[in-house]
C-alpha cells in the first residue's frame, strides 16, 4: 500500500471544477482516500482537501498535473508536522438504556458529544484526527455500530504564508 498524502487546493468556485480535479487524479491511476470541499473566505474560491494514496514521486507528478488545470489557483502539500487536520464522524450505536452511561463516559473521554438518544440507539459526534476516530470506532464497535458517516479530512497549514 502506498502512503497517504494530504493536498489542499484553492480552486474556482464554479460547476465542473471538482470533476476536473478528481478525474485527473483517477486517470493518472491514483486513488482518492478522502475528499472535502467547501467555500473559503473568498466567495469566488473553494478549498478542496484531498488525501491521495501514492508514493512520493507520483504525488509530485499529481501536483504538477493539477497545477496545469486552469481553475486551480494554489496547491499546498500538507505534512503532519506543519499543519493541523480534523475529521468529523457520526456514529449510530445500538445501545440498551442500561448501557447508556458507558457510552457517555467513552464520549467524554474522547471529547465527543451525544447528538441523539433513541430507545435502542445513540448518535455520537466526534471530531479529531483519523487515528482518534479509528480508536473510538473500535471501542463503539463492541456495542454494535449500526451506521457511520465520516467527513473527509480537512487541514490547514500552521502560521501565515503568502
Amino acid at each position: 500500500m502506498s502512503d497517504l498524502h494530504t493536498l489542499s487546493l484553492l480552486v474556482e468556485n464554479k460547476p465542473g471544477v471538482l470533476t476536473r480535479v478528481t478525474s485527473l487524479i483517477a486517470r493518472r491511476g491514483y486513488n482518492i482516500a478522502s475528499l472535502a470541499v467547501d467555500r473559503v473566505e473568498d466567495p469566488t474560491l473553494s478549498r478542496v482537501t484531498i488525501v491521495v494514496e501514492a508514493d512520493a514521486t507520483p504525488t509530485e507528478q499529481i501536483i504538477k498535473q493539477l497545477h496545469k488545470l486552469v481553475d486551480v489557483h494554489k496547491i499546498y502539500r500538507l505534512d503532519d508536522e506543519d499543519s493541523v487536520s480534523r475529521e468529523l464522524a457520526l456514529f449510530k450505536v445500538a445501545v440498551t438504556p442500561d448501557q447508556r452511561p458507558e457510552i457517555i463516559s467513552i464520549t467524554n473521554v474522547y471529547r465527543a458529544r451525544v447528538l441523539d438518544i433513541s430507545p435502542d440507539s445513540m448518535i455520537i459526534e466526534a471530531t479529531g484526527n483519523g487515528n482518534k476516530l479509528d480508536t473510538m470506532e473500535g471501542l463503539l464497535r463492541e456495542y454494535g455500530i449500526k451506521e457511520i458517516v465520516r467527513t473527509g479530512k480537512v487541514a490547514l497549514s500552521r502560521g501565515l504564508r503568502d
Binding site: T57, E60, Q61, K64, Q65, H67, K68
Partner: peptide, 8 residues
C-alpha cells in the same frame, strides 16, 4: 515549458 514533463 511544461513542469509536469520534468521528471515524469
Amino acid at each position: 515549458i511544461d513542469p509536469a514533463e520534468i521528471g515524469k
